[in-house]
């Protein structure tokens, strides 16, 4: 997956344009787990929406497996930050729907959905509606909903953002387990640097907006398979965290100044 010189501009209500992302280029290899980190409002999510085809770039191109992306990215699965489950469907129906839309008969989709619910540890919760589940459980259902379609690319927009620290750690490990079983290209957006390093192969840093761009790209020299709580005790983890934070801090401060001023 490659994003080349992507630029995103929004037309403002009062006329004029707001450039959210300026000439960002990013390549994600097959099976690579890349995290994007940046201060609030830097356009991380925008970049993800472009990779998903939900948003068209004002300039630049997006290539998916060598072919330019013109419509919705059919190869990608997208895990959203906000609740995106269908509230009127049970957990099982929510997971099965991605198969059913692709033409799989219900009788076949439901058992497979049940398998996936079991894999995310919710085998007994198939008949619950989303509002009966906790935030963490909803994210698990969301993960199963996306992964059951076996997307080649996984896009994740601060998926564990609204969860508490313990649940985040458990969800992170669950994600790594599932990803290890079948390595997909992952683009993971977060504002949490520790989470980014612990999960990914590469960490990309974005500058504060407007006209945000990519200002850093680090390889993560940690072995796999990893356990999130253990990896955080690793010496290499600390060195890398210090390096990246040094660069990120300036941007975060800039980002704050911007929002404070506004």
């Amino acid at each position: 997956m490659a994003l080349d010189d992507v630029q995103v501009a929004f037309r403002l209500a009062g006329g004029g344009t707001y450039t959210a992302v300026e000439r960002a280029s990013l390549r994600v290899a097959d099976g690579e787990f890349v995290a994007i980190v940046g201060p609030t409002g830097c356009g991380k999510s925008t970049l993800l929406n472009i990779a998903a085809g939900l948003l068209a770039p004002a300039a630049g191109t997006v290539d998916i497996f060598g072919a330019p992306l013109t419509t919705l990215n059919r190869q990608a699965g997208y895990l959203f930050q906000a609740d995106a489950l269908f509230p009127w469907k049970t957990a099982l129906e929510n997971v099965a729907i991605g198969l059913e839309t692709a033409g799989t008969p219900v009788s076949e989709a439901r058992p497979r959905a049940h398998e996936w619910l079991k894999r995310v540890g919710l085998g007994a919760f198939g008949d619950r509606y989303p509002h009966m589940l906790s935030g963490g459980q909803r994210k698990r259902v969301g993960l199963a909903q996306v992964l059951i379609r076996d997307p080649k690319i996984l896009l994740m927009d601060e998926p564990f953002g609204p969860l508490d620290a313990q649940t985040r750690q458990i969800m992170g490990n669950l994600l790594l387990d599932l990803w290890n079983a079948d390595r997909k290209a992952v683009l993971f957006v977060t504002h949490d640097l520790e989470e980014a390093i612990a999960l990914s192969d590469r960490v990309v840093i974005m500058s504060a907006g407007p006209a945000a761009h990519i200002i850093g790209d680090w390889q993560v020299p940690l072995k796999r398979p990893r356990d999130i709580s253990e990896v955080k005790l690793d010496e290499a983890f600390h060195d890398l965290h210090r390096d990246i934070w040094h660069k990120l801090k300036a941007e975060v401060v800039k980002g704050y100044a911007m929002t404070e001023g506004a």
Partner: peptide, 22 residues
């Protein structure tokens, strides 16, 4: 919800399925 709508589209729903399921 725009998120639910975006999710539905990412899950491969066409216009008819969006009508029915969303």
């Amino acid at each position: 919800s725009p998120t639910v709508l975006a999710n539905a589209r990412m899950l491969g729903m066409n216009e008819r399925q969006l009508m029915r399921h969303v």
